[in-house]
């Protein structure tokens, strides 16, 4: 069920190009090494993607947005 919930979320966020910012992985408590790898890789990915672009839309005046869309 979890994977479907997460896939649901990813698909929905896909409309806004944000699907890569959600990640799901199964890691057992015995897999410390894997935990480190997954978290490090995801942290780097998020860093390379930069800050969440959505707050800018909330604050930006509409005209600026319209210009950006052209």
């Amino acid at each position: 069920m979890t994977i479907k919930r997460i896939t649901f979320l990813q698909e929905l966020l896909g409309l806004f190009g944000l699907q890569e910012r959600v990640h799901l992985a199964w890691i057992s408590s015995a897999e410390a090494q894997k935990f480190v790898e997954v978290v490090t890789a995801f942290t780097e990915k998020i860093k390379s993607l930069g800050p969440n672009p959505l707050p800018a839309y909330r604050d930006a005046p509409r005209a600026a947005l319209a210009a950006a869309a052209h």
Partner: peptide
């Protein structure tokens, strides 16, 4: 609508939501 790229899709949807 799904075929819009990530950036364009975001711009267009957020324009509507705004």
């Amino acid at each position: 609508v799904e075929a819009y790229g990530p950036e364009e899709g975001r711009n267009r949807w957020m324009y509507e939501f705004q």
